[in-house]
Amino acid sequence: MNRIPILFEDGEALVIDKPARLPIEQPRKGGPSLEDYLDDLKLGFQRPPMPVHRLDTDTSGCLLLARNPKALKRFSAAFEARLPIKRYLGVLAGVPSTAEGTIELALSKISSAAEGWRMIPARKGKPALTRWHVLAETDGRTLVEFLPETGRTHQIRVHAASGIGLPLLGDPVYGDGRGAPRTMLHAAGLEIPREGKPPILAAAPLPADFVALGFGDAE
């Protein structure tokens, strides 16, 4: 089992660089998940660390783990209060008509036997807001920085497809799944303020599959 890179570590928190295609919870059909690594991430502590928030299976990058139950409660409250600053990088399957913008589309969950579940823009859904701007373009694809101010499920993926009008490259649910072996979304940065302590600051390097698309110098 390869070790997962650690981006930040102190007595109450770890931030890891979650590999793409690694689910946080063990899939029903079996297979590897982050749970397989938690004992390895004790790093001398009695308890394994616990994920505070979620990243989609395909999404790589910064994931906060709490090293004790009290820290988990505090960090969870911070996310509930929208205190963390999250920075994502995504590759759009095309070039947008504008270089930046703010997307404010409420989201709701729907499901069907044929297609499973997905999130859709819905007037009566939960509020969701994402700021974005273009960093680079190459070969008809665009590297975009996303700054979500809310943390809804699939928020950036839906906001890219329905707000910008271009899905993320490789997204099989909100796009056609072509152009990349995974949905091209990376949690590049995470900042979490803490009362009486320095903030948690973490940055995850650009993954190799982003670099392979020609965006190695764009971050």
Rank of each mutant, 00 (worst) to 15 (best):
G44Q: 12
D56M: 10
E100R: 15
A13P: 03
V52P: 00
G90F: 02
V134E: 04
K126G: 02
G31F: 06
R194N: 01
D36E: 13
D176K: 04
T102Q: 15
E104Y: 05
A114N: 12
A212G: 11
N68S: 14
D40K: 12
I6D: 06
R123H: 13
P148T: 12
A71M: 02
L63N: 02
R178G: 11
R82F: 07
A212W: 13
T57N: 04
A202W: 05
P172G: 07
D10V: 05
L129H: 10
T102P: 11
E80W: 10
L63S: 02
P5E: 09
R82Q: 14
F210E: 06
T153C: 01
S33N: 05
V95Y: 02
A212Y: 13
P172E: 10
F146M: 00
L7P: 05
A106M: 07
I156T: 06
I110G: 02
A78G: 14
A128T: 03
M119P: 03
M1N: 14
H133C: 05
G189D: 09
E100I: 01
P27M: 07
P167W: 09
R21T: 04
H159F: 08
A113P: 07
L43F: 12
V173M: 10
H133T: 04
L89S: 00
D56C: 08
G61T: 10
G140V: 09
F8P: 04
P48W: 13
A203H: 11
D171M: 13
A20Q: 00
L135S: 01
V134S: 06
G31P: 09
K73S: 15
G216K: 15
S60T: 11
D58G: 14
D10Y: 06
L64R: 04
P49W: 01
L185C: 12
P84E: 12
D39A: 07
P69I: 09
R157L: 03
E9C: 11
E137I: 06
V91T: 06
R74L: 15
D176T: 11
L190W: 00
A188L: 11
G189L: 10
V134M: 03
A128R: 00
R131N: 00
A202L: 08
L213W: 10
E35A: 12
L135I: 05
R47Q: 15
L38M: 07
A114I: 15
G165D: 02
N2R: 14
